[in-house]
Write a protein that binds this DNA or RNA. Structure first.
Lengths: 247, 247
DNA sequence: CGGGAGTTTGAGCTATCTCAACGGGGGTGG
DNA sequence: CCACCCCCGTTGAGATAGCTCAAACTCCCG
């Protein structure tokens, strides 16, 4: 009956949302889920639309953005496979506070609000898990808020790249290539800056061989150095003085 | 057995966390809760402490702050009666990401992590409610993140005061007095600015009779004007030109 | 009647934004 | 297959919001 393939079920079962549920329970929950495909650049939902659907991303990648009344965009987060998005759907009568746009071709599972509440009553573990996921997410968002409030652009950019690295990247020789297609503008919108400033900083880092920057593609050569920029008071301008690694 | 007074139980039952639970269920849940008192300026918990307790504030007020490695503080949010705090306790093995300091004498109920999970399995509604509370909170935090990323200090400050007004304030004649004891420094830490800039903006607003600013006390005279500053491109500098209300 | 915490205000500085102009590569249509 | 075009990126120069530091001021409290 369910159109979910068994391997996918395995993966989903060990996802934070379904932690502690039996395989057959997960399977039964997913009978209510509708597979959805969305092509690159298309939207799962748009800001201010009535929020009725919650999604689990199976593969692809998604950019969650908020638009200000005067047209500026802010990138709230990137979503990678097995993550939840559109959680506002759990609130009755709300609107999506942001838009979800595919940055690659995506497959996802869709749950409707009317089912979510019911399912969580039947499988309390799922509700507890969802609670914990949101706690963690709030926590992460708080960290980024603190960053934005206290750190300069260079450090925020370093944090952003490191975060993207952890979320989704792969090695190619000595380089760690970020899997996320990222225009300068996108990076700027993630850290509350401008594409010009981002471009300048990336150029500077590239000239110090910390990264390799390309068209909508960024690779990290020296993540540890970036880490130092992100955390301590080391700026790329200072790198000449302390050429390579000391703790 | 339970040390909770009946009136308090009434109030709690209609709290977002206990929505939809029967009175006796709430009562049974609260048998696991331990009343806690904390005096003004003392802490419920501190950042980096192992997170084992979740609280429901009964009365008083709390300031949740995060400290950066280099000693700067950021005020994450103010907590008012019947709100939940310390939710990280729901995650096993975590640390508190922030400190919770009483800004007034406080009473709260304390739940321990080992009980939380159990209770949520028994009363799924509580888990669903907790999930929804966190969804809402993430949503609010996202809004503030967007503000911080895109708006200038003056607008952020206006937003902050309006938010404080909604959370906890009372009328005194023509004025709306904020119930929160707020030093300029605190306001600055809420909006990612400095006490100097905050002081300057408040002075300017006061000279336009939008507010009355005192020592750790602020009252709003023209919330609608503040709203316009917060939302539109009206700055206090422009107020002379548009002396009073038009839509 | 100090003393100190909280606040105000001035003056200078700088990180970052803005605007404008140019560059380059790759996809597309002729 | 070539050329053009468009999108993305770079770089410079100038403007500025807001930060920093320093100093004075005002309450409140003991």
């Amino acid at each position: 009956m369910s159109p979910i393939r068994p391997e996918m079920l395995d993966a989903l079962q060990h996802t934070p949302l379904f932690q502690g549920l039996k395989r057959e329970e997960v399977s039964r929950i997913l009978e209510h889920a509708r597979p959805t495909r969305v092509e690159t650049d298309a939207y799962f939902f748009r800001q201010a639309e009535p929020a009725g659907r919650l999604y689990i991303l199976l593969n692809g990648q998604i950019k969650v953005t908020q638009l200000t009344p005067d047209g500026q965009q802010v990138v709230m987060r990137m979503i990678n496979p097995l993550e939840l998005f559109g959680c506002v759907a759990a609130l009755s009568g709300g609107e999506y506070p942001a838009s979800a746009q595919a940055t690659k071709d995506c497959e996802a599972l869709c749950l409707y609000d009317r089912d979510i509440h019911k399912l969580m009553q039947i499988y309390p573990s799922m509700a507890v898990n969802a609670f914990q996921i949101m706690v963690k997410r709030t926590h992460e968002l708080q960290d980024r808020y603190r960053e934005l409030a206290t750190e300069c652009v260079e450090r925020r950019l370093a944090h952003a790249l490191l975060r993207l690295m952890q979320q989704s990247s792969h090695r190619e020789g000595d380089l760690i290539v970020l899997d996320t297609p990222l225009a300068r503008q996108d990076l700027a919108e993630m850290i509350g800056s401008t594409l010009y400033t981002v471009s300048r900083i990336l150029s500077q880092w590239e000239s110090h061989q910390l990264i390799v920057a390309g068209r909508e593609k960024i690779s990290l050569a020296e993540p540890e150095q970036l880490q130092r920029i992100a955390e301590a008071q080391v700026f790329s301008a200072d790198l000449k003085k302390a050429p390579l690694g000391e703790a």
